[in-house]
């Protein structure tokens, strides 16, 4: 297990390789489709300091409000590939060091990870209870009115949030290699 205290530097990120298990502690920000389109179209400055050196998490949480404070009830990852057209550019524009979600991403993001120095972190799908427990505090929420709860950008403080590096800054992707290998085996089973 590699402990990553956020924010991280480019050098730290470049030491990570696919298959590494990481534990995140610090401030991260959620963002899905609406947030990515906003960051590409308007390049808002208000999120710049929040995103530099940290992680954007593809997550549409279930939240509740208790005594005026937001609480994360369930906070698993959503499918990342929807952000493929935007992710690499958002990463470079805002100095993100990691993208977290599920299912992995494509060639454009992989190239951006290599060029800029970043990793893709895969969180376990369907493990929403534990992931919500790792969210210790909701620090802020951006664009809540306009984007709605799942699509808003939640600024959260996490402690020991677990994920696996499945795409690294050296051009490697677990998703690519696993698919190549499994397809070879599948072809053999199908055509033998």
């Amino acid at each position: 297990m590699i402990n990553l205290q956020l924010p991280v530097t480019e050098d730290q990120i470049r030491t990570l390789k696919i298959g590494d298990e990481v534990s995140l502690t610090g401030t991260i920000v959620t963002g899905r489709d609406a947030a990515h389109v906003w960051m590409i179209d308007e390049k808002p400055d208000e999120v710049r300091d929040l995103l530099t050196g940290t992680v954007i998490y593809h997550c549409g949480p279930v939240v509740s409000k208790k005594d005026g404070e937001w609480i994360f009830v369930a906070a698993g990852p959503t499918t990342s590939i929807r952000e493929e057209p935007y992710q690499g550019d958002v990463m470079k524009e805002y100095g993100l060091r990691a993208v977290m979600g599920k299912g992995g991403m494509g060639e454009k993001t992989l190239a951006a990870l290599k060029e800029h120095g970043g990793v893709y972190l895969h969180a376990v799908g369907g493990a929403a209870t534990i992931q919500a427990q790792s969210v210790k505090k909701v620090l802020d929420v951006i664009k809540l009115e306009e984007f709605g709860v799942p699509e808003a950008m939640w600024v959260i403080e996490v402690e020991d949030f677990r994920a696996v590096v499945t795409m690294d800054s050296h051009g490697n992707s677990i998703h690519k290699t696993i698919k190549e290998k499994s397809t070879q085996i599948a072809e053999k089973l199908i055509h033998s």
Binding site: G60, V62, V73, A74, A75, G76, G126, A128, T129
Partner: peptide
Amino acid sequence: NSTPICQD
């Protein structure tokens, strides 16, 4: 905790 296994 009687909370959803998955948010979906």
